[in-house]
Write a protein that binds this DNA or RNA. Structure first.
Lengths: 208, 208
DNA sequence: GGGAGCATGTAACGGGTTACATGATTGG
DNA sequence: CCAATCATGTAACCCGTTACATGCTCCC
């Protein structure tokens, strides 16, 4: 009764990061592992933790074993070859199935800055403030990057190529996300300052 | 020259989830592994992925080995014992050091729903919409949970107990975060609908 | 009687990272 | 000449999960 070798079992055995790599290839270009890493750092990373290069290579191996990608070697220069990967028809089908029908999972969030504020009773106010400050700078930088990414892709035909409008949609989502993240950090800083002010000048009621 | 056994090396060997567990204990109560899991699911999970119970047990082992927590057995009922953990002075010091001085790391975000929209060119519009719809429901539910969490803790003296104001601060942050997440999902749905409308009634320019 | 909650832990496995190894090319 | 970039992979390791094992108590 246990036919562990069917397509569903294969699909289940691809981790989300594998779909991400396959997804990068679904836009139609032939890419090397190295290319994929750069691409991931320029697009994927705004909404999905960019995998290490070594993992990209191993996911490619897995995807090839499953028949979801094909590879061939092409000349890198006169002396060396490189391996370029392309999505296969099976790969496109499996990815489509995943996009449409995989269980909708909650986003994985590990917000260590929020955790540190949560433990604020252990910290000195100015140290804690500095931590959140640096996080706000991070959010600001991500916002700048994602905005730049939007304009660089927008150069031209977003409406025409149907495969391009969805990345564009997600980039705009990312813009809003990181704007919100920055604002949330700012608000947190203000809350911390407010708290400090309350302590410097403790509540009036008791004294009066 | 390599004194790998100093306090900094010890601190470095605690993963963020370990600090989370120690953090739960830093509020002063003696808790079992089981208690910690429940607590994590009620507070931590809004900003930091709640660890599996088995990992909590193994983090507790690690923390005890490092001298950051102590444990003792107390009667669970007439027949059985349970092990309760408490933070030690060294643990409090190490945790404080981490909160104040650890490098500020970017939050880990793995947003598979955003990834699926990004691959929208592979999906049928209504399937994709349904995915985002379910995500919006998730965000809505998280917002409701975090709001409930706020009011349940607020019953009483948030201003008085200094250890309670920081969790309160982070709960409010979480409220804003999940409200934003819900709104972002809603906006994504509207963008998808807008796209569908554009396709049903393709651009005028060419025909005119 | 049976299911849910309390309570603790181990084992197997997989996902993912860092470090290491290698070597050619390009550009300042 | 040296650093950065292109390019590919392996090995060790750790973080974290699921599955499994066990057994009591409380309540319907």
């Amino acid at each position: 009764m246990e036919s562990a070798r069917d397509n569903r079992a294969d699909a289940a055995s691809v981790p989300a990061t594998g779909w991400a790599v396959l997804g990068l290839l679904s836009f139609g270009r032939e890419l090397t592992g190295y290319d994929l890493k750069k691409w991931a750092d320029h697009s994927l990373r705004f909404f999905y933790w960019s995998p290490a290069i070594s993992q990209i290579y191993s996911e490619l191996k897995r995807l090839e074993r499953l028949g979801y990608v094909t590879s061939r070697t092409v000349a890198q220069d006169e002396l060396r070859n490189k391996r370029v990967y392309a999505i296969s028809e099976e790969g496109r089908l499996a990815l489509t199935e995943w996009v449409q029908h995989a269980p909708v999972e909650p986003p994985v969030l590990k917000h260590s800055v929020a955790m540190r504020v949560w433990l604020g009773h252990l910290a000195q106010p100015d140290e804690l403030r500095a931590v959140v400050e640096r996080h706000r700078e991070y959010a600001e930088a991500m916002l700048a990057d994602v905005t730049r990414s939007e304009h660089s892709t927008e150069t031209g035909f977003a409406d025409e190529d149907p495969a391009r409008v969805y990345p564009q949609l997600v980039i705009r989502w990312g813009e809003r996300y990181y704007r919100s993240e920055r604002d949330l950090a700012q608000q947190m800083i203000e809350d911390l300052d407010h708290l400090a002010a309350l302590r410097a000048q403790p509540a009036l009621p008791p004294e009066l």
